[in-house]
Structures are given as structure tokens and as C-alpha cells.
Nucleic acid binder design. Structure first.
Lengths: 160, 160
DNA sequence: ACTATATAGTCCGTATACTGATGATCAGTA
DNA sequence: TACTGATCATCAGTATACGGACTATATAGT
């Protein structure tokens, strides 16, 4: 593993960039200007109405300083509303707007197509194995990230 | 593949961030302040002395606007020198300095340790399979990136 | 030789990421 | 109740990424 090309970190960095590029192209072709990061946040607020930013960040493994800007832009696009929580004045409560929900639905096919393209270089069985290993490797290292994935509190889940 | 957690793009994004965090921690513990991106660039200049920025960018799949800043910082740290090419005045010729070479050597163990940790959640056979699939999936999509990997011109290679 | 095109590097603007710091607020405890 | 420590959100600063534009220079074609 002496050469950079063979290092997992290098390959993952390349694939991540390709992923962002494909998402941008597919969603752009569908007529929307939304990043993959913004999509994930919007999608989670849709399934967890009234979520606060810190919990949202935990659900999609974003850093807390990153989520501020992401939500800023989603609010500015009119896809999210942000209000001070009534039960905890430190927290900001997020809700998806009608426009946000409409955008989410229209974008859905482009998002699925993106994931399909991402794996298009692999055979069916290889795709399944790749996803399994990707999930296993990532979850094993979850706590090494500044932004680890955190499960939602019991009773709050509403994923489709 | 309806949920974000199961999408390849999401998992790859998380693993990429974990990768950067591990690299930062390992290299930092070794007493150096160098990013994984800077390391890759430095390493390539070491094996390809006199390379120009565009070719370097192609070898490590960086965007040409990104490489400018990366090289800026490596020059500022004293690890690289940058001069106008004598055969093509548009191009900038890069050379690694003695300090750069020394840093590269001292960092090497931390880099290898990073890659080992990256795969530590998988068994030996799984690691090999994961790397194979990662390589296959990435190379199949190479041209979809704004910064595709480009082979060096014949006769120029000098990889270890 | 001249022109059209392509390429190398840079700059501007925007969007993640993350380190470290801060203010506001909350929860637990003496 | 007053104090302590934790948490939520934000901000400043730095480093990738990349779209788009620009200058300088090289090359291909006529």
C-alpha cells in the first residue's frame, strides 16, 4: 500500500467527489439547484418535523458548525422554516415548507438515479457486497469522526 | 434505497470525512501539520520531480483550481519550490525541497497507520474485496468527475 | 505568417468541513 | 437559590472543491 492510488483514503476521496458531481448533474438536469448535503438535511426534516439542528446534525452525521450554513441556505430557498424552540430557547426548531416538500418529491427520481450511477461500474452481487462493506467499515469508525452518526431519541423516528 | 443511510453517496461522504479526521489525528500525533490532500501532492512531486501543476492535478485527480492553493501552502511551508517552466512559460515546474523530503519520510508511518485504521472494521478478506470494489467503482466513473485521474505521459513515471 | 483554438495557471464566488471560541440557556447539585 | 458544567447555535479562520471567467502562452491549421 505504498502508492497513493492504492490507499483507501485516496479512493474514497475520489469517489466522494464523483458522487457530488453526479448528484449535481442529475439534480441540475431536473431543474433544481440543491446540493447532496442540502438534500439530506431537507429529507430528514421532512421525516422528523420539529427537529432541532443538533439532532438533525446527528442523524446525518454533519458537524454542528456545518449544519448552520446548510440550514441557512435551505431557509433562504424557502424550503425550511427555523424558529426558536418554545421548550428550549437555545434550540432552533425546523419545519419543512410546502415548497420544500414539493421540491423533495420532484428531486426524488434524480437522487435515486444518482445512487444507481454511483454503483454502475459493479455487477449486481458486487453492488450488494460493496454496500455491505461500506456500511460495515463506516459504522466501525463512526466515533472517530467529529460528526458521528447519532440515533434519534426513541419515539421520534418517522423514517420511510 | 429509499433512506439516506443506505445510499452509497451518503456512506461515502461519511467515510471520506472519517478518513480526513484519522489522517489529521495520526499525522498531528507525529508532529506534523499536513493535510491528506497536501500529502498526496507532496508525495507525487517527490516521485515526479519537475512536474507541472496541471499534470500533478491529473495524477491525483484534483481540480486545477484546487491545486493552486494546495501548492501555495506547500511552498509556504517550505516543502515545495515553484518556478516558471523554461520550455513552456505558461507552466509552473515543481520540485520537492530537502525539508519536504524529510517531512515525507517522517510522516510515512502515520500515513500507513491511517490506511490500516480505515479498514480496521473489516476482516482481511473483506479488506481486499472492499479495496477491489472501491477501485472498480471509482475507475468506472472517473470521467464523470471534473477532476478525472489522468495517467502521466509515457516515460515520465517514477512511482515507487 | 496569421488566425483559431487549446492549454496552464490564477482569481472570484459559493458550499462544505472542521478547530476553537463565545453567548445564551438549561440541568444538576450543594 | 447560587454555582457548575453541559448543551445549542453561531462566528471567525483555514482548507478543500468546483463553476465560471480571465490572462498569458502554445499549437494547429490554413
Amino acid at each position: 500500500m505504498q502508492q497513493i492510488e492504492e490507499m483507501p483514503g485516496h479512493l474514497i476521496r475520489r469517489l466522494q467527489q464523483i458522487s457530488v458531481a453526479i448528484f449535481h448533474a442529475e439534480v441540475g438536469a431536473a431543474g433544481f439547484d440543491l446540493t447532496s448535503v442540502q438534500y439530506a438535511a431537507l429529507s430528514k426534516v421532512n421525516t422528523h418535523p420539529g427537529i432541532d439542528q443538533a439532532t438533525l446534525a446527528g442523524l446525518i452525521a454533519y458537524d454542528r458548525t456545518t449544519i448552520t450554513g446548510v440550514v441557512d441556505r435551505l431557509v433562504q430557498k424557502g424550503f425550511l422554516s427555523r424558529q426558536v424552540s418554545e421548550t428550549d430557547r437555545r434550540a432552533r426548531v425546523l419545519e419543512i415548507t410546502r415548497e420544500g416538500r414539493a421540491a423533495l418529491e420532484k428531486i426524488q427520481p434524480a437522487v435515486l438515479e444518482t445512487q444507481k450511477i454511483m454503483l454502475s461500474g459493479l455487477s449486481e452481487p458486487e453492488q450488494a457486497e460493496f454496500m455491505r462493506l461500506l456500511e460495515k467499515a463506516t459504522s466501525a469508525l463512526n466515533d472517530l469522526s467529529r460528526a458521528p452518526l447519532k440515533a434519534a431519541k426513541a419515539g421520534t423516528e418517522n423514517d420511510r
